[in-house]
Amino acid sequence: MARQKKQQFNVLEHELVPEHRVLSPEEAARVLRELGVEPWQLPWISYNDPVVRAIGAQPGDIIEIKRKSFTAGEIKVYRVVVAYSRK
């Protein structure tokens, strides 16, 4: 860890990275009710994903992602943070 240089570039600024936002528990409950799913049925995102670390989300949080869509302009999708490694 000591050898790791502090990364200066913020991944959130990259043009490939869409906007990620952690939902509050109330919003999360509303979203789940609207979609009619349990949290695990959402697509997952790893807790050590660079973006998740950058926004400081915890496992169990639900993240709202504003994707640039190829067909629909802009679309909101949700991912649940899971505590398992990317590798």
Binding site: V11, E13, H14, L16, V17, H20, I45, D49, V52
Partner: peptide
């Protein structure tokens, strides 16, 4: 750094995350 990309998908996953 905002526009630079690679054609290595795994590398993008490591550096910029799953959505990228």
């Amino acid at each position: 750094p905002r526009r630079t990309i690679t054609n290595n998908i795994r590398e993008i996953e490591q550096v910029l995350g799953i959505e990228a």
